[in-house]
Amino acid sequence: MKSFLKLVNFELNRFFKLYFILMGLTIVSQIVGAFIVAIVYMNDAERIIYERQISSSQYIEEYGVFSFFNYFNSGWFLMPIIFCIALLILYVFFIWYRDWLGKNTFIYRLLMLPANRVNIYFAKLTTIMMLVFGLVGLQLLMLPVEVKIIKSLVSEDFQTSFSFNEIHHLPILSWLYPVRFTEFVMMYGIGLILVAVIFTAILFERSYRLKGIFFAIVYGILSFCVFMVPLLLNSFYTNYFYPNELLVLQLVATIIVLGSAIWIANHLLKHKIRV
């Protein structure tokens, strides 16, 4: 356990500078965006009211009130999220390859540690998930601040009511924060399985090199097929399985895919990995 914690701490340290930059970028972009979107809306509203000599209520009737969707669909809000997602996807690969391709072949030291080698796999997996959840948590802390900024800048007459409890109705946020906690676990569980399968595929490549790329692709396709079996069954035999039966089938498929990813990774790290 101690070596696992050490490894996680070590992996986090390695990414921390870049991670702080990502967090900073997200905070700055979204806060600045909240100011800009609200100010631009109010300036436009005031300009139109002045130019057309109409009342606020007439303006609202014709142009509508400020919708928080304007902000949540703006590049200021969405771009940093997309950027973070893209960078973390890249880091899923980089977290392994940097150990081989870095200045010092760090993988030597990792593999020589007097602990179970599969700890390296789990530590990297835990690190990726912590980085993801860290950004998910940061975004949750940011949302009320952003809503407050907008509410303070847009006159009350021009606002729609917005409840923090309804963020799961917003386009990208419905994926980040599914409506129920069970769905949150399921959604990020699928993400975890995907990362685990990619990690194992990387280990195939690192174990068998050129041939390993072929093994990795075959393994990836097989894992995908097993994961999709319940859904494929449902599309071939429409309505044959009831929803709760499909859920159990999906759970079994998930356990098989995740279990085999860990088992294969353990085997490769113990017996096949090449430095």
Partner: peptide, 10 residues
């Protein structure tokens, strides 16, 4: 918007 409820509901 609830994926699981959409899935589980008859």
């Amino acid at each position: 918007n609830s994926l699981i409820e959409d899935f589980l509901n008859s």
